[in-house]
Amino acid sequence: MTIRQPTHTPYDGSSKLFTIGLKPLELNRWIEVDHLLLPHLAEKRRLYAEIPEKIFVEEEETRDAQQEVFDLLAGYLPAKHPETHRGAGSDVEVVGLESASNALPPELNKAPLAHASLLVQEDLIIMRRGDNGWRLAAGSLCFPSSWSLQEKFGKPLQQIHAPVPGFGPGTRPADLINRMFDGLQGQPVERFNWSIQAGDALYHPLSNGERIDRATNRPTRFSDGDINAHAFIRVERQTLRKLPVSRDILFTIRIHLDPLAVLARHPDKVALAASFADQLNALDQAQLDYKGLSADRDRLVSYLAGMAMVA
Rank of each mutant, 00 (worst) to 15 (best):
R135P: 00
R135C: 01
A138F: 04
A138S: 15
L141G: 01
F143T: 07
P144E: 01
S145T: 10
S148E: 11
S148Y: 03
S148G: 10
L149C: 12
K155Q: 13
K155H: 08
P156F: 09
P156C: 15
P156K: 11
Q158H: 15
Q158W: 13
Q158S: 13
Q159G: 00
I160R: 04
H161D: 00
H161G: 02
V164Y: 02
V164D: 02
V164E: 00
R172V: 13
P173C: 05
P173L: 04
A174Q: 12
A174H: 08
N178S: 14
F181Y: 12
D182G: 01
G183E: 11
Q185N: 12
Q187V: 14
R191G: 02
R191S: 09
R191V: 10
F192Q: 05
F192G: 05
W194K: 07
W194R: 09
S195R: 11
A198K: 15
A198D: 10
G199D: 00
A201G: 13
P205S: 09
L206W: 02
S207G: 11
G209K: 04
E210F: 09
E210C: 05
E210Q: 14
R214C: 11
A215E: 08
T216A: 13
N217V: 06
R218P: 03
R218I: 06
P219A: 10
T220M: 08
T220E: 11
S223P: 01
S223R: 06
D224T: 02
D226R: 13
I227Q: 01
A229H: 12
A229W: 09
I233W: 00
I233L: 15
I233D: 05
R234Y: 09
T239A: 09
T239V: 07
K242P: 00
K242M: 09
K242Q: 10
L243W: 06
V245E: 09
V245F: 09
R247E: 14
I249V: 14
I249H: 05
L250E: 08
F251Q: 06
T252P: 04
T252K: 03
I253N: 09
I253M: 10
R254L: 15
R254K: 14
H256M: 01
H256E: 05
D258E: 07
A264F: 06
A264E: 13
R265C: 07
H266Y: 00
P267H: 12
P267W: 06
D268P: 02
A271Q: 10
L272M: 10
A274Q: 15
S275H: 06
F276A: 13
F276W: 08
A277M: 03
D278H: 02
Q279E: 14
